[in-house]
Structures are given as C-alpha cells and as structure tokens.
Computed example of a mutant assay.
Amino acid sequence: MTDRQVPLKPAATVLLVRDHVKINDKIEVFMVVRHHQIDFASGALVFPGGKVDDGDMDAALIDFLPESERRDDPLRAFKIASIRESFEEANILLARNRQTGRLVTHERLDALADKYRMPLQNGELPILDMVRAENLELATDLLGHFAHWITPAHMPKRFDTHFFIAEAPPHQLAAHDGEESVDSVWIGPNEVLTDADKGIYTVIFPTRMNVEVLSRFDSSKDAVAHAHGTDTFTVLPEMEVTDDGKFLLIPEEAGYSVTRRRIDEIMDK
C-alpha cells in the first residue's frame, strides 16, 4: 500500500439558474443525469461540468474575453471550461456576438451547436477555434464563483473542482447532449433534495451540499450576486476514523449545513 496521493485533475462545473416559482422553490437550476458508463458519478444528477482541457488554458483566449476579465486570473481556465462544458452538456452558450455585444441568440445557438458542439465534446477542436471563427466573446464576467471543492486525499480519483453560477440566458433552450448525459431537468433546489431522499435521483455529496446552499436564495439574481460579492472557501474534506465508523469532516467556515457525516450515509445518497 502506498501513501502517495493521486494527482488532482482540474475541473469546472456551472449552476445555470433561472427564476421559477414552485411549491417550495423560487428558482430552478439546470441539471443533467450522467450516463451510466461514465467513470465518475455515473447515473448521478449533477450540474454540467467536466475536466479542464488543455485548450481552455490557451493564452490566446484572453483576446476573446471581456476587457474586465483580461487581468491575471488563476480561475480563467476554469471559467472557460465551465462555459465550454455548459455548451457541450446543456446547449447553453455564455458568449456574446463581438459586433453587437449581445449574448448569442437562440437561432445562432442552434447553428453553433450543429457545427461545434460534438467536435468540442470529442476533443476534435479547441474552443479557441470556435470563438475565433465565429467572432465570439466568452462571457466569463457573468460567472460568479460559487464553491471550490477538492477531492479527499484517500480517494482513487481526485478533482480540483471550481463551481460557478450564472443566470441562464432566457432566449436559449437548455438540452442534454445524449452522450455524457442521458437526461436533463430544470429543477428547484428543495425539489432536488426531496427527490434524492426518495431515491428518485442519485445526488453525490458535493452536489447535494451546493444544492442546499442554492436553496437559501429567493431569486437567481440574488444567488449570482452573492457569488460575485463573497469570497469562496476551499473545501478539502478530511476523513475521521472512530469506533463508530468513518466520517467525512467539512470545515465549518465553508458555511454548509453539514460539518460531519458518516461516509456510508454519503455513499447511499
């Protein structure tokens, strides 16, 4: 047995939110059900996201960002990855027409999706090729930094994941890709928690914790503004072994409702 830690893989995920009053919720978030053959969180209800690609780190992309976003930013590649992944997995593209300064329309989104969505997902071209050819600006300024989770050291696969949040463009229609994700839903945060407890959905622990935080907001605008206006605490859960079992510990400073949870209970969610 070796004590060497598994290397971290940079990853990004995005909470696309909109206002929609339901019985117990005032906002909805777009979530996808991952394919059962995916090697991480297979079959789970998750936010769109994935690993940061080499192409997301290309310095040439700086010229295709808003001027306010061109300063040094350690989160730049994560933001770009979250926009790319939301396009690939949710058919939502947070990008502007550089001529008009407006977010891409639904009609143009359809054309872009037909041409670029699958090649991007298959790694056949980097996102730089698309934004350069289509004269687009990636709207990283719309993304609020919602959370930052690092997979515990004892896990066989480890991710350094940044969660972002943005209001979904009202004129774009979200849809899962049918490849990495096999279903999708606009769903309220409290609805997610209720359905997870009923066994309708599988929701992994970090997703559940961030859904709980999202449930505290009364509007999508408030949720995004809060993310823009507050610092994000890095969560690196630690494992505690006692006579009563194994527990995962979450720092209290992170602001989640749970600071200690039995690992077998987490695995059941």
Rank of each mutant, 00 (worst) to 15 (best):
F40D: 07
Q99P: 01
I250D: 02
V258A: 14
A254G: 09
V32L: 10
M57Q: 12
V235T: 11
G144F: 04
I92F: 09
D264K: 13
D56H: 06
L249G: 08
E88K: 06
H162S: 06
D3W: 04
F64K: 04
S68W: 03
H106S: 10
Q37S: 11
L236T: 13
I204A: 13
V213G: 00
L61Y: 03
Y116L: 04
E180M: 10
L75V: 02
E89S: 11
E252T: 14
L103G: 12
D197N: 12
E212M: 13
H228P: 01
M57L: 12
G101C: 03
F64Y: 15
H171G: 00
A196T: 14
V211L: 08
L65T: 03
S181G: 08
S181M: 07
E167Q: 15
D39H: 15
T207V: 13
E265Q: 15
V33H: 07
R261Q: 14
V29C: 12
G188I: 00
D177N: 13
Q172A: 01
E265D: 13
P74D: 00
P119E: 08
Q5Y: 07
I62K: 10
H106F: 10
Q99M: 06
E265S: 05
M130L: 07
K26V: 06
S184N: 05
L8C: 07
V203E: 06
E191D: 14
I27T: 14
A139E: 00
Y116H: 14
N210D: 08
L109Q: 09
L93T: 01
G50C: 03
L94R: 09
G229L: 03
L136T: 06
A147Y: 00
F217A: 05
M209C: 11
K246Y: 04
Q99C: 08
R260I: 01
D58C: 07
F40R: 14
V203G: 08
P152H: 04
I92G: 07
R98M: 03
A174C: 02
Q99G: 15
T2Q: 09
S184Q: 02
F247K: 02
H154A: 10
K22F: 11
E107H: 10
Y256M: 13
M239E: 07
A111P: 02
K246D: 12
V46I: 14
K9C: 12
G255Y: 11
V211H: 08
I27H: 05
R108Y: 05
F47V: 11
F205N: 03
P119G: 08
E167A: 10
E137P: 06
I165T: 07
S42E: 10
H36T: 14
H162W: 02
G101H: 03
H162V: 02
G49V: 09
A168M: 08
I263Q: 05
T230Q: 13
A12I: 05
P170S: 12
M267H: 05
V185Q: 13
Q172T: 06
F163C: 02
P237I: 04
L193N: 03
K157P: 00
V185S: 10
V17I: 14
D56T: 09
D218A: 15
V203K: 06
V6W: 00
D114C: 08
V14E: 07
N91V: 03
